[in-house]
């Protein structure tokens, strides 16, 4: 589990991360992948970094599912290594971000229990990339009820919020309160207690942007859905753009929200996306622009403070982007999208 005290070893971790980063797919390799069908992509991956995972999962899965599971497993392996190498404060900084996979796994287990899904199926969908040990994940998989899951999670950031949301879940019968509690726990611990100095400044800004963008996306989704829900209920603390009350009033008036974003520090990065948002019916394009803006941070993270958490986080984001891109290409090809469509709509280089 996380430790904030003790020695940190950024030199060692960043050196190892540098070699891992070099193994990521290049633009040239993406261009090749875009021209391939799902089977060819799987074959291509078999001769790359993903060989072990493709071979291990080849007997159980096929087609694009094989690719997706192999990608997830490979991602988990790399991120797990990062947590193994890192010590002290560096571990804490990395774990903060990787806990999103813990949140994912908790939600997956809870959904499995809720919908009576077989243990094996739930297990396949787990991404063992977070801080949870293999033993804890196995115990979670064996849990028979949501209360058992909460008990097993004692000592993690998720136990208390889940306990608090349980009554609401019982009352409503839908998983929404529990899922929101898990996600909120993840987002709010991102910034909490983060020691901001020169080395972590950009990382801090990145995490704030992640929270701000999440708040904006959720407010817009609520506003567009027409549901009678107060956006402040879904507000995540820690961003620098708005307070809960501000978000509530802005969500009711999308024009003001757009103006607020234009005037914010993200204004330049998002100006094109905001133009589209004003005219487009779908939020998807806007979400893509937000993701692209976040990735800009990740690129900047890669070049500042070479011996800090920054290059590690930059690698994590680049690896996630690689996994997302390969999956998008494979799924896009499976769905019959053309090379241009995949390039335009799916792949973020």
């Amino acid at each position: 589990m996380s430790t904030t005290a003790g020695g940190s070893n950024p030199e060692y971790v960043t050196a190892r991360v540098r070699s891992r980063r070099a193994a990521l797919f290049s633009d040239e390799e993406y261009r090749k992948l875009i021209r391939m069908g799902p089977a060819e992509i799987a074959r291509f991956m078999e001769e790359s970094e993903y060989e072990t995972e493709i071979n291990a999962l080849g007997a159980r899965h096929s087609g694009v599912d094989l690719i997706e599971y192999a990608l997830n497993r490979n991602l988990a392996k790399h991120f797990d290594d990062l947590l193994d190498w890192a010590e002290g404060r560096l571990y804490d900084l990395i774990a903060r971000y990787l806990r999103k996979f813990d949140a994912w796994n908790v939600k997956t287990v809870i959904r499995g229990i809720y919908s009576d899904t077989a243990r094996e199926e739930v297990e396949t969908d787990l991404i063992r990339a977070g801080e949870f040990s293999g033993r804890l994940l196995d115990q979670l998989l064996d849990a028979g009820s949501i209360e058992d899951v909460t008990e097993l999670l004692d000592g993690t950031i998720f136990a208390e919020p889940l306990r608090d949301a349980y009554d609401e879940y019982e009352e409503s019968g839908v998983l929404v309160p529990l899922e929101n509690a898990v996600d909120r726990a993840f987002y709010e611990q991102l910034i909490e207690g983060l020691d901001v100095n020169e080395a972590t400044q950009l990382y801090h800004e990145f995490l704030q942007a992640e929270i701000d963008f999440r708040n904006v996306r959720n407010a817009l989704r609520l506003a567009r859905s027409g549901a009678d829900i107060d956006p402040s209920e879904y507000y995540i603390e820690g961003g620098r753009l708005f307070s809960a009350a501000e978000l509530s009033s802005l969500a009711a008036n999308p024009d003001e929200l757009v103006q607020h974003l234009r005037d914010s520090p993200y204004g330049d990065d998002l100006s094109q996306a905001l133009d589209e948002l004003e005219t487009a019916e779908s939020l998807i394009e806007f979400e893509r622009a937000l993701e692209a803006a976040l990735l800009e941070y990740s690129d900047r993270l890669g070049i500042v403070h070479p011996l800090s958490v920054a290059p590690v986080i930059s690698y994590i984001l680049a690896k996630e982007r690689e996994v997302d891109n390969i999956r998008a290409i494979a799924r896009g090809r499976e769905a019959g999208l053309s090379e241009e469509e995949i390039e335009e709509e799916l792949v973020i280089l």
């Binding site: 939600k107 839908v174 929404v176 529990l178 929101n180 987002y187 989704r221 859905s225 939020l283 998807i284």
Partner: peptide, 19 residues
Amino acid sequence: KSLDQRGYGLLGSSARIDE
């Protein structure tokens, strides 16, 4: 269904899933 009746949490999902 409205967003809060679909089961999945709003905080961890995206507009793609909503759409």
